[in-house]
Write a protein that binds this DNA or RNA. Structure first.
Length: 468
RNA sequence: GGUGAGGUGGCAGAGUGGCUAUGCGUUCGCCUGCAAAGCGAAUCUAUAGGGGUUCAAAUCCCUUCCUCACCUCCA
């Protein structure tokens, strides 16, 4: 089945062409501070999208930029009395630390704005030549009135924007809506340009880098909803004025994360850094949380919601260990029926993702599978044979969702098995104190024991910060 | 003011005309030496207010109220 994604520009779902390479440009972060849960959501959504497309056999080319030249960076550098580069290096490292922990696969390319100044200058030159840009006292500006379709993405009327009067007042611009392509400045960081020394505007970097690496008409351009205006609107104006053809085929925008129903912002002081949420909840729960609502809608970060997710995650862990520790001590029945169930759940999972990337439904299908397996285990019916049939489906879904149960080494495994044997001996001799001592010893290794009728199941549980 | 998205059981969250998902929570039970986890059963009977269309509406139309986001940098 073809995958469909909602396109902000045409306000309709569009087919994603997976027959050739799927080129995706994702607006990344400005590296002047720690990343937060809002960034995490957008990036996890795209990571999951990428994993899904790849599982369908598509070749994905994912490019995600770093904005490493910006007023915020310069201000921060001033404040710390250091170079902008020191700041950006620190937070790029910080970015990878965070997102590696969140089990986000590396993009194919992470271009930095500062390494593409020449591309931007060439782009601006082209816009100048075609009459879309002009110089003024403060910089080079894009002339919005020259681009007739301006406002088509954000559905804004140009005259309403003007009368809104919230646009910055700058007497040197021909039109208040015009935005900077190049800002004159002699203050570091600064680069030479045909028009004067300075630094690029924010919007031009994404146009330049996406055109360079993905061409003038690629499959998906993404980012947070808050980038629709003005960032993506301006990118369209620049890119389409330059190339003369339509820019991205699909504009995919991810909803915001709120905190207890409120917008998350620095000024309110309610941002949750990735470092913070990782310590509190761990990667799997954060990923499940980020995928728990449809990507177009806002999701709310609240401890109660996250706590629920812990319960769900424990079920997944339980399920995983039930499967890998199952044996063939019993007859296997109903294997055909089980295969049918798996196929049903797999198509439920795929249909959900194919229809505008409905991760909440897909996660639901995954949990149905987990429940199914746990039910079999609970009724002592989960044999090795059945596990062998179910495990690949479980693995496939977890890997698309980017979930990772904690694995154990063979050494650990042997150690645990031996300890359990000892404990069983004590138990059969009704030496419960000794048995409990061993359980304590095992639990110190983060291993939880579950006594079934004829055997003891063990599992390594992820440590969840908030539970301690 | 403009634009967009919403208002569903204690909470979360599906469902675009008809048999009212699902999850969490709660209660009881199974299992266990105990525990934990898991499983089972029960519980809750909801669709912002008011009109209308229809044999039938959470679902369509009108209207009122409310919430949120974006309109300035923002994922």
């Amino acid at each position: 089945m073809k995958m469909r994604i909602f396109d902000t520009l045409s306000v309709s779902e569009k087919d994603v062409d997976t027959s050739s390479s799927v080129r995706i440009y994702l607006c990344g972060v400005t590296v002047y501070d720690e990343s937060h849960i809002g960034h995490a959501r957008t990036i996890i959504v795209f990571d999951t999208l990428r994993r899904y497309l790849e599982s369908k056999g598509a070749k994905v080319n994912l490019v995600q930029n770093f904005t490493d030249v910006d007023d915020k960076i310069i201000n921060r550098a001033k404040k710390e009395n250091t170079l902008a580069e020191t700041i950006t290096t620190r937070y790029i490292k910080n970015y990878f630390d965070d997102f590696d922990k969140l089990n986000v696969k590396r993009a194919d390319l992470y271009p930095k704005a500062t390494e593409h100044i020449t591309d931007m200058i060439n782009l601006i030159k082209g816009l100048m030549d075609k009459g879309f840009a002009y110089t003024s006292k403060n910089g080079v500006y894009f002339s919005v009135s020259k681009f007739k379709e301006y406002g088509k993405l954000s559905k804004k009327k140009i005259d309403e924007l003007v009368s809104g009067a919230r646009v910055e007042v700058d007497e040197t611009k021909k039109d208040p809506l015009d935005f900077a392509l190049w800002k004159f400045s002699d203050e570091s960081p600064t680069w030479e340009s045909p028009w004067g020394n300075g630094r690029p505007g924010w919007h031009i970097e994404c146009s330049a880098m996406s055109l360079k690496y993905l061409g003038s008409n690629f499959e998906i351009h993404g980012g947070g909803r808050d980038l629709i205006f003005p960032h993506h609107e301006n990118e369209i104006a620049q890119s389409e004025s330059f190339s003369g053809i339509n820019f991205a085929k699909i504009w995919m925008h991810v909803g915001m994360v709120t905190i207890n129903g409120e917008k998350m912002s620095k000024s309110l002081g309610n941002t949750k850094s990735i470092d913070h949420v990782l310590k509190k909840w761990g990667p799997n729960i954060i990923r499940l949380f980020c995928l728990s609502g449809h990507y177009t809608k806002p999701i709310d970060y609240s401890e109660d919601t996250l706590k629920e997710t812990i319960t769900k995650w424990r079920q997944v862990e339980n399920c995983y260990y039930e499967m890998i520790l199952s044996d063939d001590s019993k007859e296997t029945e109903e294997i055909d029926q089980i295969k049918d169930t798996i196929h049903e759940l797999q198509s439920e999972f795929e249909n959900a993702l194919d229809s505008d990337f409905d991760t909440p439904l897909a996660v639901g299908a995954f949990f149905k599978l987990v429940k199914n397996i746990n039910q079999l285990a609970s009724s002592e019916k989960l044999t090795k044979k059945i596990s062998d049939v179910m495990f690949p489906a479980f693995q496939e879904m977890s890997s698309i969702l980017g979930l990772n149960t904690i694995h154990v080494t063979d050494d650990e495994k042997n150690k645990i098995t031996n300890l359990i044997k000892q404990r069983d001996t004590f138990r059969s001799e009704k030496k419960f104190q000794e048995a409990d001592a061993i359980r304590k010893q095992i639990s110190d290794m983060n291993i939880v024991l579950i006594d079934h009728k004829n055997k003891t199941l063990w599992m390594k549980q992820e440590k969840i910060g908030i539970e301690n």
